[in-house]
Design a protein around this nucleic acid. Structure first.
Lengths: 214, 214
DNA sequence: TGGGTTCAGGACGAAACGGTCCAGCTAGGC
DNA sequence: GCCTAGCTGGACCGTTTCGTCCTGAACCCA
């Protein structure tokens, strides 16, 4: 989020700067560790050590591990939406979509496809385990898709896309290709499947362009 | 597999029918539980209880939990490939692809999008945790994609698909759409995103048909 | 039927893990 | 500068969980 704390503290009476910083440090460490090892395979002691804090601080800022995980869902969601908003809010052309694709592919190629999408991996791990986390993740995905579909709406309104193009469905398709691409790239430790998947989705969007640039 | 044990016992000297049945029961229970709760969130005691066996049997048939998980990867891989082979080995037309899509969607709609793909969920959970499991899953995905691309090759050879269609890339796209669809459907508890994703991938294949049926 | 091998049951141990507690320190309003 | 409320460090506890071990039953072959 641009104008509010990414890690909003729970409403308490007095909160010191130090307290906020500690909470942020915990979330940052949890984010890093759980991206690599997964949520369930990461222990509180791991997080305590990586964040240079102590047990009591974990339990001062979060009621239990589940609440920490839920806070992490919010935290990651905010980070991803912040990043994606920067890349998508001015989307007005097909080449903008290509730039969006390239940025995602490049970022993922830095670690040879490993780790996947922070939201996608949590979605699979938590969906059948924590209903609140699931619905929160689902909303984040919806917001992400909306960033895409808003751009596609602009393209349709300006006459770039045909009237029969359905921005919502196209956005869902792009998101599925992205998430499936992340998954296959992670399994293969190679970014290539993600490229192929995104290119397929882009070709599909292209098929709705008024003047095919091919 | 049709002509070999799905759960091949490790090479031991004498193995009774009862022993094989026990091993199968353990794998079947692990498969069921880990699909719902995830690998790391499922304990050996859960499996012991669900399979009506005991601790010593688990450790008689598998060295440790990791080896059980690896055996499960093989087990699930064989099940999925068996199922998919049945649906794909005679794939020769676009309508065959539509039937394949419908079968997947229908199966997933039975539980409102929950649980996702047994291979995909393991891939995300294990890829950064067990290199052997990851490479095994990656190979299974490759074999699965090959079932699809073989069908697409047949379609291309018979003149249904244009010569410039790339069956391997199309298969990767279909697989990514499927896996991404599973993921989004699981997060949303609604099969709809999976339908949209697969339809996008099918449209993409359709765009390579010699005579567009639209 | 007898002897050795494999299978079953479950008690047991050790370590990891989530979570509690408390004593001392820090910060910010008055 | 004092005082209260919040923050920090880390020892500690109970449970869970992986893994071991030992006893007895079932099985196979001669």
């Amino acid at each position: 989020m641009s104008d509010e704390q990414v890690a909003a503290p729970t409403n308490r009476r007095r909160i010191s700067q130090r307290g906020i910083a500690t909470r942020e440090r915990i979330l940052e460490a949890a984010n890093r560790l759980m991206l690599v090892r997964g949520v369930n395979a990461t222990t509180l002691d791991d997080i305590r050590e990586a964040s240079q804090t102590s047990k009591s601080q974990l339990y001062h800022h979060f009621a239990d591990k589940q609440e920490l995980v839920r806070a992490l869902v919010t935290y990651r969601g905010a980070l991803v939406l912040q990043r994606e908003r920067a890349g998508l809010e001015r989307l007005r052309s097909f080449s903008g979509l290509v730039r969006w694709r390239n940025a995602l592919v490049q970022a993922n190629s830095l670690n040879n496809g490993r780790y996947g999408c922070g939201l996608g991996s949590m979605a699979l791990e938590l969906s059948d385990q924590d209903e609140q986390a699931r619905s929160s993740l689902s909303e984040t995905f919806a917001a992400w898709e909306r960033l895409i579909s808003d751009g596609l709406h602009r393209m349709r309104d300006s006459g770039l896309l045909r009237r029969d193009a359905d921005p919502e469905k196209l956005a869902t398709g792009l998101m599925a290709a992205l998430q499936g691409g992340y998954l296959l790239a992670n399994a293969a430790h190679d970014v290539a499947p993600m490229e192929v998947a995104l290119d397929m989705a882009l070709e599909h969007v292209k098929s709705f362009l008024v003047q095919p640039s091919r």
